[in-house]
Simulated assay, not measured.
Amino acid sequence: MAKGHRSQIKRARNENKDTRPKAKLSFARVSTTKAAFVLDAIRGKDVTSALGILAYTPRTGAKLIEKLLKSAVANAENNNGMNPENLYIDECYADKGPTMKRIRPRAQGRAYRIEKKSSHITIILNER
């Protein structure tokens, strides 16, 4: 554990902060598995080809991830002063979010549970 005054600890924490541009979508109404299929298709690609892939991907989370990628590019351009042509997707992953539990009535008084899953999707870019 780090020793020192609170300000020293905070300074040390901020010095090794990740400066890569990123965007995060929390509580996306798509399961992590479905999002992961789309993210696997674009991981490691440059931004222009990734946007092309997402535009023609018929999968569930493709539109959400396309919007998120555009947001990450805008963050890189405005906050970090990076050139969008040189950017590529360094990391992208979907973490599990909270699950909404619903009940569906079935025959003979039974009830089936419907789980509406959500995820937290993160895209981290880097410059070539």
Results as ranks from 00 to 15, higher is better:
80 N>V: 03
91 E>M: 10
77 E>S: 06
85 E>F: 00
85 E>M: 00
85 E>D: 06
82 M>N: 02
98 P>T: 12
109 G>P: 07
110 R>E: 11
104 R>D: 05
99 T>I: 15
88 Y>D: 01
105 P>K: 05
105 P>I: 03
105 P>R: 07
80 N>H: 10
108 Q>G: 01
118 S>G: 10
100 M>V: 14
107 A>V: 00
77 E>K: 08
93 Y>E: 04
113 R>P: 03
118 S>W: 09
87 L>E: 01
115 E>S: 13
78 N>F: 10
100 M>N: 08
104 R>V: 04
93 Y>T: 09
112 Y>L: 11
82 M>K: 09
104 R>E: 08
81 G>Q: 02
100 M>R: 11
77 E>N: 05
105 P>D: 00
93 Y>G: 09
89 I>C: 03
112 Y>E: 15
82 M>Y: 06
114 I>A: 10
85 E>R: 05
90 D>Y: 13
118 S>T: 15
81 G>K: 06
94 A>C: 09
86 N>S: 08
112 Y>I: 02
83 N>M: 01
112 Y>A: 15
103 I>N: 12
97 G>D: 04
118 S>V: 07
81 G>S: 05
110 R>G: 14
112 Y>M: 12
88 Y>L: 08
117 K>G: 02
96 K>S: 09
110 R>I: 07
100 M>S: 11
94 A>Q: 07
94 A>W: 04
92 C>S: 08
97 G>P: 06
99 T>P: 01
96 K>Y: 08
110 R>F: 04
108 Q>R: 14
112 Y>R: 12
103 I>V: 14
96 K>I: 10
116 K>R: 15
83 N>E: 08
88 Y>M: 08
91 E>L: 11
86 N>V: 03
85 E>H: 01
107 A>P: 00
79 N>P: 01
81 G>D: 02
106 R>K: 07
86 N>P: 00
111 A>L: 12
112 Y>P: 00
97 G>I: 10
97 G>F: 08
82 M>S: 04
77 E>R: 04
102 R>M: 12
117 K>I: 08
80 N>E: 13
78 N>I: 06
104 R>C: 00
101 K>W: 07
109 G>E: 07
80 N>I: 02
88 Y>Q: 06
113 R>C: 04
90 D>K: 15
113 R>T: 13
89 I>P: 00
111 A>F: 10
90 D>W: 12
109 G>D: 04
103 I>S: 12
117 K>S: 08
82 M>W: 04
95 D>G: 13
102 R>E: 14
81 G>Y: 00
78 N>H: 13
94 A>N: 04
116 K>M: 14
81 G>V: 00
91 E>H: 10
78 N>Q: 13
95 D>V: 04
81 G>H: 03
110 R>A: 14
114 I>T: 09
82 M>A: 03
78 N>S: 12
90 D>H: 13
87 L>S: 02
86 N>F: 02
114 I>W: 09
98 P>D: 14
113 R>A: 13
79 N>I: 05
116 K>V: 15
77 E>T: 10
103 I>G: 07
92 C>I: 07
79 N>F: 03
114 I>V: 13
115 E>L: 15
86 N>L: 06
87 L>G: 03
83 N>V: 05
